[in-house]
Design a protein around this nucleic acid. Structure first.
Lengths: 328, 328
DNA sequence: ACCATTCATGAAAACGTTTTCCTAATTGTA
DNA sequence: TACAATTAGGAAAACGTTTTCATGAATGGT
């Protein structure tokens, strides 16, 4: 079942069928109708592989992402897919778990698949993967993590968000802090920590201890108590993301420490559960869905107009105060 | 940069390069080495479009899913992607929001893309979409929703899960129930409801009222209070899934009704948040990740061995008792 | 030492499109 | 009426692979 069959059935040439399908040239009403009818009768649909081969386009873009099962990334994937689908492009996703090797493999796969572009949410140490993208001249947009000057990117204003959080906590009389952040090498993690430290530096009456590890529930759960053991009890535990905050909350609750009565806990990301946690979490809201959409839009621009001007977009965040913090 | 360039650089024929790459025939060590070196020097990677065109394979499968941003489906997508990646196949996802029109479009896209197979999580009314898959003879596996005898499917044992839940509630002296279920036309929803009704039928001392609507937080939030208004307060509100339970919990809490003191609330799915909700939710655990993996495995079987024997796999569920229920 | 057989490699066809290049027919103008 | 200009639609090339088929060399047996 190919274009030849359609042509035969309609009694025209292959060229004519192609022209009718793509509207690339004038075809008389008479023939056009015959062709259209034949297409319906045969239930024909053009082969995108063949078309892609000829056009040097696949009408698909790849999205490389740490883990779709993580609600944070899931929303972003959704946003991207939606925007791309509107443009008639489909989305191939690959999970990397932030493993460098997986990231490299993912890029290689994308290269072989000849995707029209790539949306990359990396581990922050994806240098080789980035080089491969560069070498193969694949249009790419980076989300939320690195900002290589050779590519467009859209990031969330991590610094401003965490700074806002600190301002809020300070204004509600928190002075003693413990900061529990994500991985050192991850850009977002660095920015958040930088905001915390900068704010602390500007205020001589603030005491703070910083610890970094993983962006995970488990890591926080296992590490907060030992940390707390050797520090004097703080006014607030500021966490690098919501999952860490959840871990902290659960660990503290299990120890009989009350939140926010005994200690305030804050997160970052505002994932769905944050509003429904026990207690509902004070956090920084990130427009994840919008992140995906914006990334896709940028990428579409690059694909459409070739090597367009590079753009670095910064998405605004907002503070969401809930019940895991209280005025001291 | 194509196979021709490699051949030229290595001073061999195209055929030889192809044979080296795919290992489809013996090639002398000498030539093999030259070819391999040329590939490295040029940074060549074969074009999967061309290969696909020739082989009539795309090495990609499509996954049609209501919404990746929904944690439930996200885990399933992750499971499927992982399993497929192991087999060297990549995953194209399309979100449908359970809109019939979108489902049909999604299938058409998959047909044009000539995917090697499709994993379908549908709305339950995807008849036209299914016919299109059938007509185009695309290997397909259905997840969690319908069980068309023409396709393999893997479903979660919704009936048994909800039955178990009822047994537990009954054994803890709940007698008056309200059931808040998902859409009538969705298979999983039907099964869960059937379990509730069957159990109630077998026990003359049970009183129950059933309502169905959407599998959503919002729907539950908006409808539980009006419903509760006209019924006498039940011992338990049994919900069709966790999101509904969350909505019920939040609506009741806002009204000052205590859970589980005043009324027990149960969910179904055991999404990540369930364990951390306020209160932690008694629910039925579904192996979502495993669902995706199993679906992928089945599909790979069909792709590999052609129209293999059809399989209908039922995944077991388990009851998870937490703090949203108490002994009456 | 000669013929038959095996086998490594190359040439070319095929996969299903799009598009360039022609050709024949139609239209318009003098 | 005749010739130039336009145009609808067909033939064929090209995209980058894999694989069949063919060929020439090398090997082995008698």
């Amino acid at each position: 079942m190919n274009i030849k069959d359609v042509a035969q059935k309609a009694g025209v040439s292959i060229s004519t069928v192609s022209r009718v399908i793509n509207g690339t040239a004038f075809v008389s009403e008479e023939l056009k109708e015959k062709v259209l009818q034949a297409i319906i009768d045969l239930g024909y649909s053009p082969d995108y592989l063949a078309r892609g081969l000829r056009l040097k386009k696949t009408f698909s873009v790849g999205m490389i992402v740490p883990d779709v099962a993580n609600p944070f990334f899931a929303a972003t994937v959704r946003g991207a897919e939606e925007e791309l689908r509107k443009a008639g492009i489909s989305l191939i996703i690959i999970n990397t778990d932030q493993e460098i090797k997986e990231e490299i493999d993912a890029v290689k796969t994308m290269v072989s698949k000849r995707v029209d572009g790539v949306i990359f949410m990396g581990s922050g140490q994806e240098t080789e993967a980035v080089e491969t993208i560069c070498k193969n001249k694949i249009p790419a947009v980076f989300l939320d993590r690195i900002d290589d000057k050779r590519f467009s990117s859209v990031v969330i204003n991590n610094y401003a968000g965490m700074f806002k959080m600190m301002e809020y906590l300070y204004s509600t009389n928190h002075r003693n802090f413990i900061y529990l952040g994500g991985p050192e090498h991850v850009k977002s993690s660095q920015e958040r920590k930088r905001a915390v430290l900068n704010f602390a530096n500007d205020h001589s009456d603030i005491a703070i201890k910083c610890y970094t590890g993983e962006y995970s529930y488990k890591w926080a759960m296992e590490n907060i108590l030992p940390i707390l053991g050797k520090e004097k009890t703080p006014d607030a535990v500021v966490c690098g993301n919501d999952l860490i905050a959840f871990g902290v909350i659960d660990a503290l609750k299990k120890k009989g420490i009350k939140i926010p009565e005994d200690v305030s806990v804050t997160g970052f990301d505002d994932i769905f559960y944050a509003a429904h946690y026990n207690p509902p979490l004070t956090t920084v809201h990130q427009p994840n869905y919008e992140l995906g959409r914006e990334g896709a839009r940028l990428l579409l621009g690059h694909i459409e107009y070739g090597s367009e001007k590079l753009v670095s977009k910064i998405l605004p965040v907002s503070l969401v105060v809930r019940d895991s913090t209280r005025v001291r």
